[in-house]
């Protein structure tokens, strides 16, 4: 039984179909990259996974549970922007990952101290220990995204959804973030879905790369057909999953 299943998903806004016949099953611990042209429905699919929207037809289940109707604790998310709370300090942002589920949204007393200690460990893991007391506005873009990921993981979600998380970062920072994310994933074994418009990034990080596109192209009315998964690549071992090249081939292969 696979961990995340999407069965026969259709999504349309008004009369305009965005997604049609999307079927997907993902094993626990897989890293799935989702790529595609702008407006191909990859972000829509992520919103469906997040349960921010409910599909017109079909259903998405995590671990066989009933389809969710609104975002909840089992789904963690990091957006390109606005993923951290500007009015909370860096430390409080991570604590919020645990405390927001409480009736008053905060811890008190010994519980608070314990949560702060755990949050400091998360910050140490994200390399943000020295910024614990600062507000997110004082952080660089890469630091903010590291904080957002740390905050999402502090809530211990079942799946982690990333919507172009490194889209606004410069190339150097982006490479650092790749290393950070890969290390973190090796530690936690988290199931991750990442939407990106950067193919190389998708192949580098993902175990699978899903391509969203329109299967057919109606010349009279291009908008009449929604997008679906047109390719499902196995991206392990740099895209060559079932053969291991023993000898040094001197062929340039970007890792």
């Amino acid at each position: 039984m696979s961990f995340v299943t999407a069965t026969n998903i259709f999504q349309s806004y008004g009369r305009r179909p965005i997604l049609e016949r999307v079927n997907l099953s993902v094993e626990e611990g897989e890293f799935v990259s989702i790529v595609g042209a702008s407006g191909c429905g990859k972000s829509t699919f992520l919103r469906l996974l997040l349960a921010q929207e409910t599909p017109t037809r079909g259903e998405i289940r995590i671990d066989g549970a009933e389809p969710a109707r609104e975002p909840g604790l089992d789904r963690g998310v990091v957006f390109q922007r606005y993923s951290v709370f500007p009015h909370l300090s860096v430390l409080e942002n991570v604590v919020a990952g645990e405390s927001f589920r409480r009736p008053w949204g905060r811890f008190i007393g010994a519980e608070k101290r314990a949560a702060r200690d755990r949050a400091m460990q998360v910050l140490a893991r994200c390399g943000l220990e020295h910024m614990a007391a600062a507000y997110p506005a004082a952080l660089s873009g890469g630091m903010q995204q590291r904080l957002a990921i740390g905050q999402a993981l502090a809530a211990k979600p079942r799946i982690l959804l990333l919507d172009e998380p490194f889209g606004a970062l410069d190339p150097g920072t982006r490479l650092q973030m790749h290393d950070f994310l890969m290390d973190l994933r090796a530690e936690t074994g988290m199931t991750v879905f990442m939407v990106t418009h950067d193919l190389e990034e998708g192949f580098k990080l993902g175990d699978r790369v899903l391509v969203f596109d329109k299967p057919r192209w109606d010349l009279t009315d291009p908008d009449i057909i929604g997008a679906t998964i047109t390719y499902d690549f196995d991206a392990r071992d740099g895209g060559i999953p079932f053969q291991t090249i023993k000898e040094d081939t001197h062929v340039f292969r970007p890792n």
């Binding site: 997040l50 998310v77 922007r81």
Partner: peptide, 10 residues
């Protein structure tokens, strides 16, 4: 996004 983020934190 910020509201959704809070929702995912429960």
């Amino acid at each position: 996004e910020m509201i959704v983020k809070a929702e995912t934190l429960g």
